[in-house]
Write a protein that binds this DNA or RNA. Sequence first.
DNA 1: ATAATATATGAGTATAAACGAATATAATCA
DNA 2: TGATTATATTCGTTTATACTCATATATTAT
Lengths: 137, 137
Amino acid sequence: MNLVQVIKALSDETRLRILNLLRQGELCVCEIETILGITQSNASRHLNRLTYARILEFYKKAQYVYYKLNEDTLKRYSFIKEILDNELIREELYRADLEKLRRYRESKLSCDDLRRNKVCFDEENQNLFIEQDNAYN
Amino acid sequence: MNLVQVIKALSDETRLRILNLLRQGELCVCEIETILGITQSNASRHLNRLTYARILEFYKKAQYVYYKLNEDTLKRYSFIKEILDNELIREELYRADLEKLRRYRESKLSCDDLRRNKVCFDEENQNLFIEQDNAYN
DNA sequence: ATAATATATGAGTATAAACGAATATAATCA
DNA sequence: TGATTATATTCGTTTATACTCATATATTAT
């Protein structure tokens, strides 16, 4: 892994959004999907790319895969830390994502709830809302 | 210009090589081409891209266009400075380019000489060599 | 064992990026 | 003025990237 490859791994908005979330602590794939409003396969692919560049690492627990920042890599490439700590916060998009994450955590809902109850984020007011299970789900 | 766009501008090896050279001071396009061994149109395009991202700026003097780092942008995005100051030097490719630049400057040849005499860099020993003008050039 | 769920991956498509060759433009020199 | 030179740009091609939909895999729950 050389410098250009690391920078390329950072040069995508969705991947920066993922790193922005994971800066607050580990998350499983379905949490990332839901908070960012992206498809499952898209989330998986971006997570894979960041892992390949060693910017992320993961561990499996039950049926979930938890991703988190690879601290060794952040130490080695201090400019990544600089971006995460000082640049992301300057743009509204990333601040809004953090707000969604905060509300999700505040709700005390689990990843299971997210899927079972089809929890979504209302794009207008950023609030969590829950569609209860019904026969057609 | 937002964060992703700046990072994308940095996510190419040739552009990093250009920035690496310009860290040592301004250069005109033909000097960059020759030292990096890339085509004129390629050099021009990458310089344009870096200028569009405000990482570079330029001024014209006679028939030449001189490019240099935009210090305001480097102050604003300190991670760029971090990359230029601490990361490039770690990889052989960029160190070799700096050595070519040093030899070029040591030779006291001008940009005019570079072109008129078809100065090239021998890729094996990194030395400058000069093909004298002749009727077939 | 079977069904359900979380995640990864394959296939196809659309878009972006990088490049070389040729041409256009603008400045200089003879 | 006409030729030369430095740089930018256009065009066509190739490769890389991002995305969706569908399917595969693996784990859990019943």
